[in-house]
Amino acid sequence: MLSIYYKIWVDAITQERAKKGEDGKYWKAFTIIPISLIQGVNLLTLLFFLRFFTDIPILFTLDLTRDKAINGFIAGLLVFFIPFVLLNYLLIFYNNRYNKLMNLYPAKDSKLYRNYVLISLGIIVIPFVLKLIF
């Protein structure tokens, strides 16, 4: 299971390095942010499906400001984005581990990364579209 995770990362890194250049400044950020967002979407999808069977909340409430939108945004960041950025940094970028992974898992022309993004977004979009239709 973890090898698929690493293969997706290798594809994403290869794609971003090809766009930004090997020595580009921001290719790491342009790699870690989209994958962390997609992983947050996967968690959101899982929580939506679990909500059908249990009463777990999708977002916890914060009362930092008077504005509910800002509180919801901060709560969303704390649940759906920041944990994945930290996890991905520690698993992929800490001590330049991505170099070892790129040698261990060859890139597949970004097909695996593209399919991961499309499937992840499709799984959450399809139920909403079906709900609108029916």
Score class of each variant (00 low, 15 high):
residue 29 A to P: 00
residue 20 K to S: 13
residue 25 K to N: 13
residue 74 I to C: 02
residue 86 L to I: 15
residue 38 I to M: 10
residue 28 K to P: 07
residue 112 L to S: 05
residue 17 R to P: 04
residue 95 N to F: 09
residue 19 K to N: 10
residue 60 F to W: 11
residue 120 S to D: 04
residue 23 D to R: 09
residue 111 K to H: 10
residue 89 Y to G: 04
residue 23 D to I: 03
residue 66 R to K: 15
residue 78 L to T: 08
residue 35 I to G: 01
residue 3 S to T: 06
residue 81 F to E: 04
residue 93 F to V: 00
residue 125 V to M: 12
residue 18 A to G: 04
residue 114 R to D: 08
residue 68 K to I: 14
residue 48 F to S: 10
residue 98 Y to N: 02
residue 2 L to M: 10
residue 93 F to R: 08
residue 123 I to P: 01
residue 72 G to R: 09
residue 83 P to T: 02
residue 51 R to F: 06
residue 1 M to L: 08
residue 72 G to Q: 13
residue 43 L to E: 12
residue 102 M to Y: 02
residue 65 T to R: 01
residue 46 L to Q: 12
residue 49 F to N: 08
residue 122 G to C: 07
residue 118 L to V: 01
residue 30 F to I: 02
residue 104 L to M: 09
residue 84 F to V: 11
residue 15 Q to L: 15
residue 79 V to A: 06
residue 88 N to Y: 07
residue 90 L to V: 07
residue 87 L to M: 11
residue 65 T to I: 13
residue 13 I to D: 01
residue 16 E to I: 09
residue 15 Q to K: 12
residue 68 K to R: 13
residue 68 K to S: 15
residue 2 L to Q: 11
residue 45 T to P: 00
residue 82 I to T: 01
residue 81 F to V: 08
residue 42 N to I: 15
residue 80 F to T: 02
residue 63 D to M: 03
residue 113 Y to L: 04
residue 117 V to Y: 11
residue 6 Y to T: 03
residue 56 I to M: 13
residue 70 I to R: 05
